[in-house]
Simulated scan of single mutants.
Amino acid sequence: MGSTTLRIALLAAGLAAGFSGQALAQGASPAQPAKPEMRENCPGLVASRSPVFRRASFDPALLQLAALAADQVRITFVGHATFLLESPQLVRIATDYNDYIRPNVLPDIITMNHAHSTHYTDRPDPRIPHVLRGWAGQERPARIDMTFKDVRVRNVPTNIRTWGGGETERHGNSIFIFEIANLCIAHLGHLHHTLTQAQLDEMGRVDVVMVPVDGSYTLDLDGMIEVLHALKAPLLIPMHYFSGHSLDRFLTRMRQEWEIEVLEIPSTVISKTTLPIKPKILVMPGR
């Protein structure tokens, strides 16, 4: 594939997206056993060669949409905790969809968590076909497992701290798992505690993790690193870091064990065969 074609693919994705504590006691309901097909679709680290992260400079002349191959997923960081995921059949998913940061394209699927107003909205665009709320109330967790075209979306409920930080709200957050093009992508949402073995088992082996790294509003840095060690994903994408200081603090700690790559634009195309052999942190510009 020529360099111009690669630039077209990533430029189109970027334009479409708009460029626009301590661990808590779980107390959650026992997780349901993972489905056998999830185990097959999320086999974990099977890469055999180094990744190729494709990037492009901004060039208004290249206003074309390049199709994805059958084994590819396009990931664009819109900002905060919102990513736009695009499947080979052009299913578009926006994570932690809210009133402040949104992609400029209409998603087919949105996921939300209600820890803070920047992670959900009560007023989603009525044209969005699939609105997935990652909470249902303290008496019962949200349970989501849906398939749309070539995408499967499921969730693993977790607890959150209340706004004042003094109490635990059961089932207030969801880790959303996206199974696309033989990849298993996990968005940790507004995670406030380390994960139980039951939750890890329900997630299965994941290939890509979108991880909040602020170290205060979500899980503290030590706890988050513990979660990442437990997940053993080959590719980590930081989010929810507010400032360069909090991102740098996370990267300084992680640089001791993980390779770090910084992209020039907030978009990349990945596949199972381009996953890194050694775990890598992929930093996209955003906030």
Rank of each mutant, 00 (worst) to 15 (best):
L65D: 03
L65E: 12
L65F: 13
A66P: 01
A67P: 06
A67G: 09
A67L: 10
L68T: 07
L68H: 04
L68W: 05
A69S: 13
A69K: 13
A69D: 15
A69W: 06
A70V: 12
A70R: 07
D71Q: 10
D71M: 11
D71I: 01
D71H: 01
D71G: 00
D71T: 07
Q72R: 13
Q72W: 08
Q72E: 15
Q72D: 11
Q72I: 01
Q72C: 09
V73S: 04
V73A: 15
V73C: 07
R74M: 14
R74T: 08
R74Q: 15
I75R: 07
I75K: 00
I75M: 02
I75G: 02
I75A: 02
T76Y: 06
T76S: 05
T76N: 10
F77H: 12
F77C: 14
V78W: 01
V78A: 05
V78Q: 03
V78P: 11
G79R: 01
G79L: 02
H80L: 06
H80T: 05
H80M: 11
A81E: 14
A81R: 15
T82C: 12
T82P: 02
T82Q: 08
T82D: 04
T82M: 14
F83Q: 00
L85C: 13
L85G: 03
L85P: 03
L85S: 10
E86T: 15
E86R: 07
S87D: 13
S87N: 11
S87T: 14
P88V: 12
P88H: 14
Q89E: 15
Q89Y: 11
L90P: 06
L90M: 09
V91R: 02
V91W: 02
R92I: 04
R92H: 08
R92P: 06
I93A: 02
I93S: 06
I93Y: 00
A94I: 03
A94G: 05
T95L: 07
D96S: 13
Y97K: 06
Y97R: 08
N98P: 03
N98A: 01
D99V: 13
D99M: 09
D99T: 07
D99Y: 08
D99A: 14
Y100W: 14
I101G: 03
I101V: 13
I101R: 04
R102V: 12
P103I: 08
P103S: 11
P103Y: 00
N104E: 11
N104T: 14
V105A: 05
V105F: 10
V105Y: 09
V105L: 01
L106K: 15
L106H: 06
L106Y: 09
L106P: 07
L106E: 13
P107I: 05
P107M: 04
P107T: 07
D108F: 07
D108L: 02
D108R: 07
I109T: 10
I109N: 01
I109K: 02
I109D: 00
I110H: 00
I110D: 01
I110E: 03
I110P: 00
T111V: 06
T111E: 03
T111A: 04
M112P: 00
M112E: 08
N113A: 14
N113C: 05
N113E: 12
N113Q: 13
H114F: 06
H114Q: 11
H114K: 15
